[in-house]
Design a protein around this nucleic acid. Structure first.
Lengths: 107, 107
DNA sequence: ATAAAATAGTTTATAATATAAAGTGATTTA
DNA sequence: TAAATCACTTTATATTATAAACTATTTTAT
């Protein structure tokens, strides 16, 4: 059982889903963003985006702050230190998976 | 709606699943491999591996050849030209997604 | 000789997940 | 003031991953 197996098993499935991967990667590159900006980024329906953000928050990877701006509800989202660590780890592990699988030889 | 959306939508979900991603990446780097070698690579149960290979074959990304070797059934798996094209495209698109998400700024 | 275990898989069932649809409560427009 | 819009959340459905159960042949043990 090659080292690819270890990388496979440890790949964080919460981050692997493409929408959450884009969200976390984008959030790791800016101070914060609000709900509508993230919706423009991903093109997700609001329901879908809401569910994905809830999962990320429940896991402690982001924090959300709900306020009113110009009489409108406004949700500001920020990555946590933990979130920053796991997204960086994810990309490293995916690179490892790719390299190990590419270098693998049968037998 | 930023360009991340286009990358998100076009990311091939058949290839994105980690086990199939490892399988296709490995198969793109060798002439062929048999069922047991791929099972050692991925650590999948035989049932799971069988299902994933069936999906890849149904999509025309691999071909399988079943024979008997030393009185044992033996399934040899090879990537197709189409398979090679789509796995290379997948990795390019994932890099794009990463780069675009990292360069994105809210507003 | 034959019952039990192992090999190399496939098929089926279940549990998890993504995603859309429907719903909420406030605000603006007609 | 009724209807439409905004910014979401909650619930339902459809898809998917994954393990469990099964099949058919072969080897090993008694």
């Amino acid at each position: 059982m090659s080292s690819v197996f270890a990388e496979l098993a440890s790949l964080d499935k919460l981050l692997h889903e493409p929408a959450r991967l884009a969200l976390m990667t984008a959030l790791s590159a800016c101070k914060s963003a609000d709900f509508l900006a993230l919706q423009r980024l991903t093109g997700l329906t609001s329901g879908n985006l809401s569910v994905q953000l809830s999962k990320l928050e429940e896991a402690g990877l982001i924090v959300t702050e709900k306020q009113f701006v110009a009489k409108r509800p406004n949700t500001r989202i920020q990555i946590t230190e933990k979130g920053r660590q796991v997204i960086e780890k994810y990309w490293r592990q995916l690179e490892s998976l790719r390299r190990d699988a590419q270098n693998w030889q049968p037998d």
